[in-house]
Simulated scan of single mutants.
Amino acid sequence: MKKALFLFMLTLPLLAIAQNKVKFGINTGAVLSDVRGESYAANFNYGMGYLVGFSMETRLSERLSFSANINYERKNPTKKEDYSYMIIVAGQNGMAQEIMIDGTAKITNILNYISIPVNLKYYIGSNKGYFVTIGLFAIHLIMGLTLVLAKK
């Protein structure tokens, strides 16, 4: 009897959610990103990142629903750049000696965002298997880091 009561109490919230027609989900995916702008953005290539988050959708009518997500996104655009610089070191005889260092560096921008898309979906077709969506999103940069890997 206690087991049956426990299971009933456990399923009550699920029944309430089902009555309101609210669906929850998990978002995952790949993100292909680039950098745009002035001279800094030149020569950046698309980089592969990822997205993880949670979603919620609730029906407003038979054909209309509202959905909202909260996602963590990591974007990683990259570029390769040649470099050349001179350093001055003390030689064996105590005299200054110039050394030129040339190489190629791989520069990766690691950009972490929180994004919150909000959409209205209108389902079409007789079985409502297709939909049209319209919405907007807010995105906030929570951390940016530039990683430079240099090879001589």
Score class of each variant (00 low, 15 high):
25 G>D: 02
137 F>N: 14
97 Q>F: 04
45 N>H: 13
120 L>Q: 04
28 T>L: 11
121 K>G: 02
57 E>M: 07
64 L>I: 13
25 G>S: 14
134 I>T: 12
82 D>F: 09
128 K>G: 01
143 M>D: 14
83 Y>P: 06
143 M>F: 06
35 V>A: 12
104 T>L: 10
20 N>D: 01
133 T>E: 15
98 E>F: 02
93 N>Q: 11
14 L>R: 04
149 L>G: 10
60 L>M: 12
95 M>E: 05
29 G>K: 04
151 K>A: 13
130 Y>G: 13
42 A>R: 08
5 L>Y: 07
53 G>L: 07
84 S>V: 04
37 G>Y: 14
13 P>A: 11
121 K>A: 09
47 G>A: 09
84 S>N: 15
48 M>F: 12
49 G>L: 13
35 V>F: 08
51 L>H: 08
131 F>C: 09
140 H>P: 00
78 T>K: 09
67 S>W: 00
103 G>L: 05
140 H>M: 10
89 V>W: 00
114 I>F: 10
32 L>P: 00
89 V>A: 10
134 I>S: 11
103 G>R: 06
45 N>P: 01
148 V>H: 03
16 A>F: 10
16 A>P: 02
134 I>Q: 02
118 V>L: 15
83 Y>T: 12
22 V>I: 15
79 K>S: 12
124 I>Q: 03
127 N>D: 12
10 L>M: 15
28 T>A: 14
104 T>H: 00
28 T>S: 13
2 K>T: 08
48 M>T: 15
37 G>D: 06
64 L>V: 15
31 V>W: 00
62 E>A: 04
19 Q>E: 13
49 G>E: 10
72 Y>I: 07
127 N>T: 11
26 I>E: 01
112 N>C: 09
110 I>V: 12
67 S>K: 05
90 A>D: 11
117 P>A: 11
118 V>W: 06
134 I>D: 01
59 R>P: 00
103 G>H: 08
53 G>A: 10
112 N>E: 14
70 I>V: 14
102 D>Q: 09
99 I>P: 00
98 E>A: 13
20 N>Y: 05
105 A>P: 08
84 S>I: 03
56 M>N: 13
142 I>G: 10
93 N>I: 00
9 M>A: 15
48 M>Y: 05
112 N>G: 04
140 H>W: 07
150 A>K: 14
67 S>P: 02
101 I>C: 00
113 Y>T: 07
45 N>S: 14
78 T>D: 10
12 L>H: 04
114 I>T: 14
33 S>V: 06
38 E>Y: 11
12 L>K: 08
42 A>Q: 09
33 S>P: 09
108 T>M: 03
63 R>F: 03
60 L>V: 07
36 R>C: 00
7 L>N: 09
136 L>K: 00
16 A>M: 12
78 T>W: 04
142 I>K: 08
123 Y>R: 11
55 S>W: 02
